[in-house]
Simulated assay, not measured.
Amino acid sequence: MPTPSAERPLPLREADLAACRTLLKTGSRSFFAAAHFLPYHCRDAATALYAFCRQADDAVDESGAPAEALGVLHERLDALYDGTPQNYPADRALAAVAQRRGLPKALLEALLEGFAWDAEGRCYEDLEGVLSYSARVAGAVGVMMAVLMGERDADVLARAADMGVAMQLTNISRDVGEDARNGRLYLPRAWLREAGIDPQAFLAAPAHSEGLAEVLARLLAIAATLYRRADSGLTRLPSRCRPGMYAARLLYSAIGEQLAERGYDAVSRRTVVPGLGKLQRLLSLGRMPWLSDADLAAPVLAENHFLVEAVNAHPGPRVSSLLESEGRISWVLERWAELDERARMPARAAISASGARRA
């Protein structure tokens, strides 16, 4: 069954959403910050999706028996799409969201397949392998977000998948040291050998080097290209969804920028964008490319093609009209007022501290 049965409408309960919001707040600061800019219809749907994905990821990573955990997750997914979700807030919330938005099951199955590749310790020899993995664990999420916003146009979905893959390449670059210490390596092994790095030796003793910096710069350059292509898709989203998605794009691409400023050293310590840096990037939302669509019709990335086809194969409702409601201008002004207030807080704190020292 591609989407949950509509024979019996499933309720979207506030208690379930509240539990999902807790997972969002504690699980991803960048996503939590970006979600603040989404309208309520999309924010709740995205929160339900994130909660299920977060629980699935944690179940595979922390169970000690990933194959069994994946079996349980597939059972949960089957029940969710049968309209009888298991007793988890995230499952109940996502079942209702998927039914209302026509979210294809194949997209969530792609995500679980990516988790299965992790569980089996799959190696990635070339860039195509890394992109195939990224399509499953992140490109699928980008496409699902677009569907939740009511977008089913193939070009827009292709750009949403680009954005997800770009984010995953950013994560891979940032986490290379941490992943290696946990016995995982997501960089193309052929690239490492070209840079004079033996993959197995790196896994045994991860260390920063000029060669590793070259590999990370190369991977982040591909991410930057995909981010730019994704920008054109953002212009086609419902207008009230654009700031939230562009915020996510800015916050994630900032990780790569910060890593570059540190000489691409992703081994010595984890790269984190400071709070003030995040705020500065969010303030640039006023410069988002509202009208640019130069890359919109670029061919879908080969590794993402099956994601776009999954949506095309199962037409669903367009819910954009839910998001184009009255009060759009006032909503935007409210968000800007909040940002302005936060921007003033560090300055106020500095003035207060200065006054205290003089006293």
Score class of each variant (00 low, 15 high):
Ser352Ala: 15
Arg335Pro: 03
Thr47Asp: 04
Leu80Pro: 08
Leu12Phe: 07
Gly355Asp: 09
Ala56Met: 06
Pro85Val: 09
Glu194Asp: 15
Arg262Cys: 09
Leu283Asn: 12
Lys25Asn: 11
Tyr186Pro: 03
Thr22Val: 15
Arg328Asn: 05
Asp16Cys: 04
Leu108Phe: 11
Gln55Cys: 12
Tyr88Arg: 15
Gly150Arg: 03
Asp175Val: 09
His36Ala: 15
Asp198His: 09
Cys241His: 04
Gly355Glu: 12
Ala67Asn: 04
Asp91Asn: 15
Arg236Asn: 07
Gly355Gln: 11
Glu128His: 12
Asp295Tyr: 11
Leu131His: 05
Asp198Cys: 11
Leu10Pro: 04
Ala48Asp: 05
His74Asn: 13
Val147Trp: 03
Leu279Arg: 11
Ala205Arg: 15
Pro289Ile: 03
Val273Phe: 02
Thr47Leu: 05
Gly196Ser: 12
Arg342Val: 05
Met288His: 04
Ala69Met: 05
Arg342Ile: 00
Cys241Thr: 09
Phe115Met: 15
Ala6Asp: 14
Tyr252Arg: 09
Ala154Glu: 14
Leu148Val: 06
Thr22Glu: 14
Met167His: 00
Cys20His: 08
Ala230Arg: 06
Gln280Ile: 06
Ala154Phe: 04
Tyr88Lys: 14
Leu38Pro: 01
Arg189Lys: 10
Met1Glu: 13
Pro346Arg: 03
Leu279Tyr: 05
Arg136Glu: 01
Gly286Thr: 11
Asp231Glu: 15
Ala359Gly: 14
Arg13Glu: 15
Asp118Gly: 05
Ala349Met: 13
Ala116Gln: 12
Gln200Tyr: 07
Val311Leu: 00
Ala160Met: 06
Arg240Val: 11
Glu151Phe: 00
Leu296Thr: 08
Asp118Met: 02
Ala356Tyr: 12
Ala205Leu: 11
Leu212Thr: 05
Ala221Cys: 06
Val272Arg: 14
Glu113Leu: 08
Pro89Asp: 01
Leu169Pro: 01
Leu216Gln: 07
Asp126Val: 13
Leu296Arg: 07
Gly327Ile: 09
Leu301Gly: 03
Leu49Thr: 06
Arg328Leu: 10
Pro85Ile: 05
His208Gln: 14
Leu10Ile: 12
Arg122Ser: 02
Phe306Ser: 13
Gly233Leu: 02
Leu192Trp: 01
Gly277Glu: 01
Leu12Trp: 07
Gly83Arg: 08
Arg240Trp: 07
Arg236Val: 01
Val332Gln: 13
Ser284Arg: 15
Ala350Gly: 00
Ala46Leu: 12
Glu261Ala: 15
Gly233Gln: 06
Arg281Met: 03
Arg218Pro: 01
Trp191His: 11
Asp118Glu: 13
Ala135Trp: 02
Ala201Lys: 14
Ser354Gly: 08
Leu212Ser: 07
Leu307Arg: 02
Asp162Cys: 14
Ala59Leu: 11
Trp117Ile: 00
Leu192Lys: 07
Phe32Met: 10
Pro11Met: 06
Arg269Phe: 07
Ala140Ile: 04
Gln258Glu: 15
Ala260Leu: 03
Thr22Leu: 14
Ser28Ala: 09
Thr271Lys: 02
